[in-house]
Structure formats: structure tokens, C-alpha cells
Nucleic acid binder design. Structure first.
Lengths: 194, 194
DNA sequence: TATATAAAATGACCACGGTCAATAAAAAAA
DNA sequence: TTTTTTTATTGACCGTGGTCATTTTATATA
């Protein structure tokens, strides 16, 4: 059984303040430019306090990015399932757009998309799971292959999304746009014509 | 036209020494543990010298990892094309094994797998290209789908390899081994049975 | 209310990647 | 050879993430 140790009001206020400042700074200059020193300066606390609230800088980043992803996934899941591949691409566009808004963000998402340990599944790993679940739920709504199960199909969609996003940052492959590439992959993956 | 500016012997010696020391240190304690300060200390040069030879620490890392990948890809390409999916998995095993030998290595490879700019295609991006080309060449040798072209198939193989490797680091998905997962993906990708 | 105990905050300090004006060494020109 | 110019090296210094013994504040106890 877990004992919920008492949490002081002070703790909640400090943490909220830190998150609030961090969000503001990100809005002002993006994720990559965020500096822990500036967060604590604006929040009016000592640097050590920051690390008493967050394991490291990435942990804060994970929270900020995770909640953004979460909001976008909620939006994507709010409407009825898209009926075809173009619909899937369109529906996921905001999610992918955010994931690639900054090189830094994309790298961080990739790095934390897998949970490091069962006991500490971070916000980004959670979002990745939600992504897969969401897409799995869309599979029955379209005219796609039925020879493999929907979970596997969804994992494939995710893999191709990552591939497409990665190539978007690659100067060698910028002839094709992200949407085109993603749609081509999905057509081959979801509707093979053998 | 390019002018090949004269290079002093000294330069080559210093650079070789730095690379040599770095390789030794990696062999001793792995990639993640490598410290620039230790490289320069053992090489007997100043820290600034290091950065006169390599843009940053990652650039050195790219060289070290890139040449390893290159060697492994050469090996994988030396034999005749594998005839089936199990053969492909087996043949790529050493490559994937190296890519996942350290979390740090995997992350770095992902980060540099796309060339940042056309003019500076790093060793890792080169290796990724070689990987795709190699696999493309294997496609005609097996009984796989023919409805999409081999380049696309190879890109898919790569995407699924990355997906499988990523999940290997994820505590949530460690029930299935990398090889099993990869083979499942490839079966669904290369031999759809609609 | 005074005292003991636990939780939170502090800031000096460290590790380590990276910079740059100054210097030394090599190559080219006189 | 001596002088000039180019190239390579140096190491003090900086930015920034992260640590930890100490101090402050809040809560429980007498």
C-alpha cells in the first residue's frame, strides 16, 4: 500500500510557478532556447529548487511537450474516425506538425518515446501509447488490409510517421513534402495491392 | 573548382592521434563515457586543438560510429543477397546489434541519420544511405510484394528496424525480442497476404 | 507556546563542452 | 638567410546543466 506523504502548499505553488514561467519562456523563444537559469531567475527561486522539483531539464521538457501532445491527440480523437488514408494524414497533421516544430523537439520526443523503466513511464511515452491506441481504433473504419491485426498496423503507421518526419529534417530528401511521403508510405502499408 | 589547400604533416599526425586515443577510450569504457578532456589529455594536446579538428564532440562521435557502421555494412554486403525475411534479419543482425549497443549510440545515430545540409552529409547519414541501398538490392532476390518499388520497400525496412530498435529500449515492450518483432514487421511489410 | 522533527529552499560549487585572442610553428616570399 | 604570411596550437575563460551540505520554513509534539 502507498502512503501519500503530505505535500505542502508551498511545494505546489513553487512547482506551478516554475511550470508557468517555463511555458511563457517557451512561448517567447521556443523549446531549444529554454535555460534552467532563466526559469529559476524569473520564478524567483534558487537553482537547486528547480532540481528538487524536476529530475533534470529534460523532465521539465517532457512535461511541457507531453501536455501539448496530449491536447493535440485529444483533438485528433474527438472527431469520428477518418475513413481513408488521406483522412488519417490530415487528422494527424497537427500532431506531426508539433512534433517537427523544432529539431530539438523531434529529437527529444524520439529519445523519450520509449519508457526507460516500467515504473517511470514519462509523459511522452504515454503520448506515444495514446497515438498508437488512437490509430488502432481508426483501422476498422477504413478499407485497409485485414491480414494482420490493427495493433500491428498502428505500430506501422507510427513507424512511418517517424520515418517521414525524420526525412523532413534531411536535406537529401526535401524534394518530397512530409504529407506526400507519409501518404505514400501509408498507401503501401495499409492497402497493399499484391 | 576546388583548391585543395595544403595540409601540414603536423595536422594529420594530430588528427590521427586524437582519433586513435578516442578509439582506445571507447574500447575501454564505451561511447557514452567518452570525455573530450580525457581525449586531449591522453593525446597530449590542448583542448582548443580538439575543436580545431572536429566541429564538436558529436562530430568525432559520428566518425567513430560511422566507420564502425561502414565496416559492418561492408560485411553484410559481401555475401550474396539473403533469400527470405529470416535471412534479411540474420544478415542485418550485426548492424542492428551495434546500433543498439548503447542507448547513447542509438540516440546519436537517429539524430544524425538525416543529413543536416546537402553540403555536409555526415558519416552516419552516409551509412543510412548505404543501408537503404543495400536492402534495395536484396529485394529482387526474395519472394516479396511487387506492387511498390524496391526503394520504397527498403525505406520501410529501415523504418521498421528503427521502430524495433526503439522498442527494445522501452520497458513496456520487452516481452518480445528485437529479432521477433523485426521479423513480424517485415513479414507484414514485404509479404502482405490480402 | 516552546521544542523537536520533517520538508523545502538555498547558493556556492563542480563537470564538461565549447570559444577565442594570443602565441608558436611552418611555409612562402624577399 | 631574413622577413612575411599562413596555418596550427594553446590555455584561460565562459555557459549551462546538475549536486549537496547548510539553512530556512512548516508541521507535529510536549
Amino acid at each position: 500500500m502507498l502512503m501519500s506523504k503530505p505535500v505542502q502548499q508551498r511545494t505546489l505553488r513553487t512547482r506551478a510557478k516554475l511550470l508557468d514561467v517555463a511555458e511563457t519562456l517557451v512561448r517567447e523563444a521556443g523549446y531549444e532556447a529554454l535555460r534552467v537559469e532563466e526559469v529559476v531567475a524569473r520564478a524567483g527561486v534558487a537553482k537547486g529548487t528547480f532540481f528538487a522539483h524536476f529530475r533534470d531539464k529534460d523532465a521539465l521538457m517532457e512535461i511541457l511537450i507531453g501536455q501539448e501532445l496530449d491536447a493535440l491527440l485529444t483533438q485528433a480523437g474527438a472527431l469520428p474516425a477518418p475513413a481513408d488514408i488521406a483522412g488519417i494524414c490530415a487528422r494527424l497533421l497537427p500532431v506531426h506538425g508539433f512534433m517537427t516544430c523544432e529539431r530539438y523537439v523531434f529529437d527529444l520526443i524520439l529519445r523519450y518515446s520509449g519508457a526507460a523503466a516500467v515504473t517511470e513511464i514519462g509523459p511522452i511515452a504515454m503520448s506515444f501509447d495514446r497515438y498508437a491506441t488512437l490509430v488502432t481504433g481508426w483501422m476498422p473504419a477504413g478499407d485497409y488490409r485485414r491480414d494482420v491485426d490493427d495493433t500491428l498496423l498502428a505500430e506501422g503507421v507510427q513507424a512511418f510517421a517517424v520515418q517521414s518526419m525524420g526525412l523532413q529534417f534531411c536535406a537529401l530528401h526535401q524534394a518530397q513534402s512530409f504529407q506526400d511521403r507519409f501518404e505514400t508510405y501509408l498507401a503501401a502499408w495499409l492497402t497493399p495491392a499484391v
